[in-house]
Amino acid sequence: MRKTARPSVLTVAGSDSGGGAGIQADLKTFQAHAVHGTCAITAVTSQNTRAVTAVHSLPPAHICSQIAAVRDDFAIAAWKTGMLADARTIRAVATGMQGHEGHYVLDPVMISTSGAALLQSSAISALRRYLLPRASLITPNLPEAAALSGLPVRRNSDLDRIARLLLEEGAQAVLIKGGHQRGRQVVDRLYWGNDKREFVHERLARNGHGTGCTLAAAIVSNLALGLDLAQACSRATDYVHAALLKAYRPGRSTIDVLEHSAVVAPIRRRTTVR
Score class of each variant (00 low, 15 high):
residue 10 L to P: 02
residue 75 A to C: 12
residue 184 R to N: 13
residue 259 E to C: 14
residue 82 G to S: 13
residue 182 R to D: 14
residue 251 G to V: 06
residue 120 Q to N: 11
residue 38 T to S: 15
residue 176 I to D: 00
residue 268 R to W: 06
residue 3 K to L: 08
residue 67 I to P: 06
residue 132 L to G: 09
residue 63 I to Q: 04
residue 240 V to W: 00
residue 271 T to M: 13
residue 86 D to K: 15
residue 145 A to R: 01
residue 108 P to E: 06
residue 226 G to Y: 09
residue 139 T to C: 08
residue 98 Q to R: 15
residue 243 A to L: 02
residue 184 R to F: 11
residue 221 S to Q: 09
residue 96 G to E: 07
residue 99 G to W: 09
residue 270 R to M: 06
residue 116 A to L: 07
residue 30 F to L: 10
residue 13 A to V: 15
residue 139 T to V: 02
residue 262 A to F: 14
residue 210 G to K: 03
residue 155 R to D: 13
residue 251 G to H: 06
residue 85 A to M: 13
residue 132 L to H: 13
residue 106 L to V: 05
residue 108 P to M: 02
residue 24 Q to D: 12
residue 108 P to W: 04
residue 136 S to P: 01
residue 61 A to I: 05
residue 152 P to G: 05
residue 208 G to F: 05
residue 90 I to A: 06
residue 157 S to Y: 03
residue 186 V to F: 02
residue 32 A to G: 07
residue 142 L to C: 06
residue 77 A to K: 14
residue 74 F to G: 08
residue 208 G to W: 04
residue 230 A to W: 00
residue 202 E to V: 13
residue 109 V to Y: 09
residue 161 R to I: 01
residue 184 R to E: 14
residue 126 A to I: 03
residue 61 A to R: 11
residue 211 T to L: 01
residue 104 Y to K: 02
residue 188 D to I: 03
residue 117 A to W: 00
residue 162 I to A: 01
residue 124 I to A: 03
residue 142 L to T: 05
residue 54 A to I: 04
residue 129 R to G: 04
residue 135 A to D: 12
residue 23 I to C: 09
residue 182 R to Y: 11
residue 236 A to R: 01
residue 2 R to L: 11
residue 239 Y to M: 01
residue 248 Y to W: 15
residue 94 A to T: 02
residue 126 A to K: 08
residue 149 S to G: 03
residue 213 C to L: 04
residue 211 T to R: 01
residue 119 L to F: 11
residue 184 R to A: 14
residue 250 P to L: 10
residue 27 L to P: 05
residue 229 L to F: 09
residue 67 I to Q: 04
residue 9 V to A: 05
residue 208 G to L: 14
residue 74 F to D: 04
residue 139 T to Y: 10
residue 206 R to C: 08
residue 2 R to H: 11
residue 240 V to F: 01
residue 250 P to Y: 10
residue 30 F to A: 08
residue 108 P to S: 00
residue 210 G to C: 05
residue 96 G to M: 10
residue 255 I to P: 00
residue 236 A to T: 02
residue 19 G to N: 11
residue 29 T to S: 12
residue 63 I to D: 08
residue 237 T to K: 15
residue 253 S to W: 08
residue 172 Q to K: 15
residue 12 V to H: 06
residue 61 A to D: 14
residue 179 G to H: 09
residue 107 D to H: 04
residue 172 Q to N: 14
residue 216 A to Q: 04
residue 178 G to E: 05
residue 128 R to S: 01
residue 195 D to F: 14
residue 188 D to A: 09
residue 145 A to K: 03
residue 150 G to T: 02
residue 37 G to M: 08
residue 161 R to C: 01
residue 153 V to M: 03
residue 214 T to Q: 01
residue 65 S to K: 13
residue 200 V to Y: 04
residue 159 L to P: 00
residue 68 A to E: 15
residue 86 D to R: 15
